[in-house]
């Protein structure tokens, strides 16, 4: 399916909160579409973390996007993570743009950069990726519904608008309140932002699906969106995640290695298979606007 001209389609994975599994789901979806023969790239407009990856050209990006690229079978590129902030203190971070450090910035200095140059940086990266790939899967950060943090957002609906991407909203059912988080997120988005959300995904499910099903029907009615799928809680995948302060991540933290070992590829293959079985691929292809490959 290596058509001459890259299709340049997009899909965005946003979450109702942090740690809902956006990174894992993005990685899995990248791998699923790559397996189906598409040229796929992961993307996160702006990422905060302390784990770096250096590309062959010596460009620095967040390790999460590097791992996502590797499990998709493409070389990591700074276009996949155009803005990477490495926190130094609560108010100062090193800001790395398209793989190169701009030095340290305070919160105010970064806000100024974001307002004036951030959009162009992100738009440029997306344009270059669209010229090379059939599908770019964008990962959001935190929640798109932080109404007090909307201005100049680059990581959620800001990125979705620049990419003109349809959005899948992910909720974590393991911590409880998933219906409230999904409903509330939809309620707090603007009309235009809401229109981008095409479906919701429930992640980390444990227990009796028959107890959940009545709730799914009610939820679909409340938010007028289909549920793309319910992904079960998966214990044994590791992915270097952004370090929150004092946060012990229940998904586990991996060794910081530049090369992805066989066992990682195996783990991601398993994850991709589980996600593929848990979602409606027909709906997903419809949302993305790509033809379903003939098997």
């Amino acid at each position: 399916m290596n058509n001459k001209v890259p299709m340049g389609r997009t899909l965005m994975v946003q979450g109702c909160a942090s740690s809902v599994g956006k990174s894992f789901i993005t990685a899995a979806l990248c791998r699923i579409f790559a397996r189906d023969g598409w040229r796929v790239a992961p993307f996160k407009a702006q990422n905060m973390g302390s784990k770096s990856f250096f590309t062959a050209e010596g460009k620095e990006i967040n390790a999460v996007q590097a791992v996502q690229a590797k499990v998709t079978g493409v070389p990591p590129s700074p276009d996949m993570n155009p803005i990477f902030q490495k926190p130094i203190t609560d108010t100062v971070a090193e800001v790395i743009v398209l793989g190169e450090s701009l030095g340290n910035m305070t919160v105010q200095e970064y806000f100024h950069f974001k307002k004036n140059e951030g959009k162009a940086v992100v738009a440029g990266a997306l344009k270059r990726l669209k010229e090379q790939f059939d599908l770019i899967i964008l990962e959001g950060g935190g929640s798109p519904a932080e109404v007090n943090l909307r201005d100049h957002d680059l990581v959620n609906m800001g990125a979705a608008a620049l990419a003109d991407a349809p959005v899948i909203l992910v909720g974590d059912i393991d911590r409880g309140g998933v219906f409230a988080y999904l409903t509330g997120t939809m309620l707090l988005l603007t009309e235009e932002e809401r229109r981008r959300v095409k479906a919701v995904l429930i992640n980390k499910f444990r227990g009796d699906l028959s107890l959940l099903e009545p709730g799914l029907a009610l939820l679909e009615e409340k938010i007028s969106r289909p549920i793309l799928g319910v992904i079960p809680y998966i214990n044994d995948v590791c992915l270097p995640l952004e370090e929150g302060l004092d946060r012990a991540d229940d998904d586990g933290v991996c060794l910081r290695e530049e090369s992805v070992s066989e066992s990682w590829q195996g783990a991601y293959e398993k994850l991709a298979r589980q996600v593929r079985e848990s979602v409606s691929m027909d709906l997903l292809y419809d949302i993305v606007g790509l033809p379903i490959p003939k098997s």
Binding site: C16, G142, A145, A180, G184
Partner: peptide, 16 residues
């Protein structure tokens, strides 16, 4: 609020 989405969760809880 540390986890993100808190405002949405409050509004959403009441809506349900």
């Amino acid at each position: 609020i540390d986890r993100g989405g808190a405002l949405a969760a409050l509004v959403g809880s009441l809506a349900l």
